[in-house]
Amino acid sequence: MSGPASPADYPLLLWPAAASSAAAHVDYLISAFTAVTLLLTVPIFLAITWFALVYRANRKVYRGNPTDRNVMVEMSWMLIPFFLTLGFFAWGAQLFDVSKHPPGNAMVIQGIGRQWMWKFQHPGGQSEINDLHVPTGQPVVINMISQDVIHSLYLPAFRVQTETLPGRYTQVWFTADRPGAYRLYCSEYCGTDHSVMDGEIFVMKPGDYENWLNQAGSTQSLAANGKRLFASYGCTGCHGAAATVRAPSLAGLYEKPVPMADGGTVIADDTYLRDKILNPDHDLIAGYKQVMPSFNGIIPEEQLIQLIAYIKSDQEPVR
């Protein structure tokens, strides 16, 4: 389905392919909403046209008893459409809520946006540029960050997009259910080659995906890579089990609250861990003397992701 080349081969497209049940839900929502808005607006168009023709100045029609106000009528056409449409607000908010909360068993693919390409890394360490392979039936979270300006990963076939911000991780998730090749785009304007920062997302049956993973080849998983980096950047010297310097243990830290020096607590999520690696002097932790050097400009974004994947995987409390 990667597509024929000549534009003449493309008939008039009117509806995009849907590759997930969530996408189908959005389609239901917009179809129903369209129907209701037509119900509310077509009478206006008809009435205006009808009145304009019937009450032309040169026509002799009954124009008696014109009203120029009627509070009941006005209140009703003000409020009834409002409450009708509020249903769609609730519906949309509910679907949005689902789209914000990936299921716990979701597979996490790491994404990096940069001018002007996407880079994705699978849990097993396989990485790809601009294209993305995902299995059907498996919830997939793409955990993304931008290396420079704001981008936005847009997957029309799943009816979802989320911006990637510099300095902060954002997520988008979906469960694909129809194998095929679909487009993925950067939808937030990001400079000269914004329009070629696109690619294809290949939805595959789980078996095919396994095969692809194997042939894509990878030496190490993200977490294993992270563990190697953890040692090579010297992190083990302080944070390792046998460390002599008094530094907080990172085992079991992920998603746990961290007490801060000024009394508050912060949840140790991806963004927090990344920030601490790059800028350890910032937001000091209670009970520890700050001696860690900054790794800003030393560890590239991809390796940060691997380090965090390692910290995430290291869930055994050591002490």
Binding site: H25, V26, L29, I30, F33, F88, F89, W91, G92, A93, Q94, L95, F96, S99, S152, Y154, P156, R159, V160, Q161, T162, S187, E188, Y189
Partner: peptide, 11 residues
């Protein structure tokens, strides 16, 4: 509408 905008934003 939130879920619709998640699809249509910046299109």
């Amino acid at each position: 509408t939130l879920a619709v905008d998640a699809h249509l934003h910046d299109t």
